[in-house]
């Protein structure tokens, strides 16, 4: 697994851009973690969050439907359709729900890198 380190963020190579379905998500393995990676084809933007839905602690967000709410990108968990902002990870349908961890994404040519905290 190739990684690029900057000051406090470690960028690791997740997959090729073509591995991710248009307007959809995939699950990326990073060490023992699972990260959900989403591609919004229309705006050509990428988002990454934890794959675990905090509601019932299910590894499912990468399989959820993506979309927008009043312009804000979001994903809906396949289990109970709770939706989370992909910008800041907060739950949009239940203010008492825990927020998701979000990760920065960088594209270089056709390669997708996700930034995680450097340890």
């Amino acid at each position: 697994m190739s990684t690029i380190s900057t000051t406090d963020v470690t960028w690791f190579f997740a997959c090729k851009t073509t591995d991710v379905p248009t307007n959809g998500g995939v699950c990326v393995k990073y060490k023992d973690e699972q990260i959900a990676l989403f591609y919004f084809t229309r705006s050509d933007t990428w988002y990454a969050t934890q794959n675990l839905c905090p509601h019932r602690r299910q590894m499912a967000l990468s399989r959820g439907m993506t979309g927008t709410h009043a312009g804000e990108p979001k994903v809906a968990c396949p289990f109970h359709k709770k939706t989370f902002s992909l910008k800041d990870g907060r739950c949009l349908t239940d203010e008492h729900e825990c927020a998701l961890t979000v990760y920065p994404v960088r594209i270089e040519d056709d390669r997708v890198y996700i930034g995680v905290n450097a340890y």
């Binding site: 307007n23 229309r42 439907m65 993506t66 979309g67 927008t68 709410h69 312009g71 990108p73 809906a76």
Partner: peptide, 8 residues
């Protein structure tokens, strides 16, 4: 917009 889990 981009659609959502309702309209898709």
């Amino acid at each position: 917009g981009e659609g959502c889990e309702v309209c898709k």
